[in-house]
Structures are given as structure tokens and as C-alpha cells.
Design a protein around this nucleic acid. Sequence first.
DNA 1: CGTTACCTATGTAAGACACCTATACTCAGG
DNA 2: CCTGAGTATAGGTGTCTTACATAGGTAACG
Lengths: 157, 157
Amino acid sequence: MRADRQPRCRCRVGPGSFEVRARIERFAEPAVLLLLAEGESHGYQLAEDLEALLDEGRVDFGNLYRLLRALEEEGLVASTWSEEAPGPQKRVYGLTGEGAALLDAWAASLRARSERIGTLLGRYEALAAPARPRDTPAGEAVQPPDLPDNHEQGGAP
Amino acid sequence: MRADRQPRCRCRVGPGSFEVRARIERFAEPAVLLLLAEGESHGYQLAEDLEALLDEGRVDFGNLYRLLRALEEEGLVASTWSEEAPGPQKRVYGLTGEGAALLDAWAASLRARSERIGTLLGRYEALAAPARPRDTPAGEAVQPPDLPDNHEQGGAP
DNA sequence: CGTTACCTATGTAAGACACCTATACTCAGG
DNA sequence: CCTGAGTATAGGTGTCTTACATAGGTAACG
């Protein structure tokens, strides 16, 4: 166990200030399928393309290769060893029909996810900006979004 | 180990057809923080509100209560036992200043995530609909998005 | 020949969630 | 009074996905 590591997804960057380190969050699979739909590729190349697509620092190679193997086991992608080209051997992947179908399903799912995020953000903004001149019914502030420390974790009365 | 369970996130609903069962995907925490920013509430009530907000079937109570306890340990929410009201005792939660700050951070993170999803979907749609009359340079089809089974998982030549 | 870049893997641990079970209190009905 | 349904809170356990670390090959270059 390594205790000198920061929490994975949230970290305090100052008093009362937070940074949420968003992870790829189940993006790796659909992103890889998309890249393969755009053209055949090999692992290392996919990693570079993923970085550009996701705008994330460094994609983890280990997990990418594992993902590709798993997808192949399920028949969603197919691979051959590159014959031409000198240099180290590359395993070149391409999408199968099943893989394309899965990509379609992912697209639908991601659209739904995006909508849910939109809903959430919409409600957040409605809360955060109650300074509109029109629709503020005078004295109906949503609630002081903050209570001073009244922790009370003890047992029930 | 239970082997009679379906895969968590993808399931085949027909030949060549997939359904992606999207999970809450790290939505629970920001959603709970948002609901508490809108007003104090207790676990059971939050579960119902979450179902409406996320449009998901049945929220898991166990994980929700665990999340609330964890948030309280970090000082992001504060709870008191409801005194008034008849019926079983309720632990009423409210957002602290720190919790509100975290919600802000989550909002920024979710916006970024939504953008990434948008980028991905944009490229997907560009692939899926290459039937535009204007920008098809004649014979540059992106690639047949499918290769017939040429699996070849054996060792390297 | 050693170093570096390219390319493909495996090992290990942590975090978040699904699914299941347990507890306790309240209230209505027989 | 006992029972059962509804409300409310909580713990156990397995699995999935990811982060971080390590390892082993090929080839080009000085």
C-alpha cells in the first residue's frame, strides 16, 4: 500500500477549493472503436490518437492493450501481425461488423449520457445564477447554500 | 462467484445488436451535491429525487447512504436527526461551504466531459453520414467499416 | 556496444458501483 | 397484541475499470 498518493478523483487545491480530476470514465472503449472505424491501426498508434481525441495526458498503454485483447476475444475487433514495414512487429486491428454495431450502441448511450449531464448542469446554473431581473419572485432565494458546522454524528436521541 | 450474471455494461440484445447499459458513471456524487444545494434532504428522499434527475431505474440505497457518510466524514455535508415530523427518524443532510465548492468543481469537470463526448459524437456522425453532396471527393470512402473474419491470434511469424 | 525510440505485453492495487442482506422504527389491520 | 407493509439507515461482497509499475522484444544511431 502506498500512502503517498493523492486521492484519485478529487483533490483539495486550497482552502475551500477543489479540483476534480476527471478520468477517462468509460471513454476508452467507445473511443477506440471510433478510431478503428475511421481506419485500421495498431496499439501504439491508437494511444497517440486517443491522446489527441480525449485531450488527456498520456493514455495508459497497459490498459489499452488489455482492452484490445478483450475486444478481440469478443469478436469486436480483429487483428493481424503487420507483415510489411520494418521495425518492431505491430498487431494491426480493424473493426468487425459486431464492433461497428457496438459502436452504434455506444453512440446512443453517450448521447443519453450527455443529455443527463446537460440536465444536471442546467439545474446547477439555475441555482448558481439567481440574479436574473425577470424571474426572481422576491424573497424566494433557493436557500442559503451553506450551513455552518452543525455536525452531529452521534447516535440517535 | 456467480457465473449466471450478465455482463455489466454491454449486452447483446440480438444478432449483431448491442445495448449499452450505461451506469450512473460517477454521477451519484455531483447529483447528490446538487440536490442538497437545492435544499436539505434525507437519504430516502434523495434516492427518489435522484431517480427523477438521472432517469435511471432504482437508485441503490446502500451506495447512496455510504456516499452520504463519506461526504460527511470529509466535511462536505452535515447532518442532524430530524426532530419534528412523525414516522421513522431521518438523518437530514445539508451542504456545507466546502461541499458547495466541490459542486462548483464538479460542474466544471462535467462541462469538460460533455465537450469530450460531443467531440466523439461529432466524429462518429461524420463517419456514419458520408452522404453529403458537397464534400465527398469521389472515391474517398473513409474505409469499409468492417472486415470479414480474419482473426489470427497465433504467435508472431 | 550502449542508448534511445518504438511496440507489445503482464502484475498489482484502488475506487466506484451492483446486488444482496440486515436492522429498526412507525403505523394500519385483524 | 401480533403482523405486515412502508419508511429509513446501514453493512457485506464481488466485479469492472482504471492508475501505476514493470518487463521484454526490435531497430536505428552514434
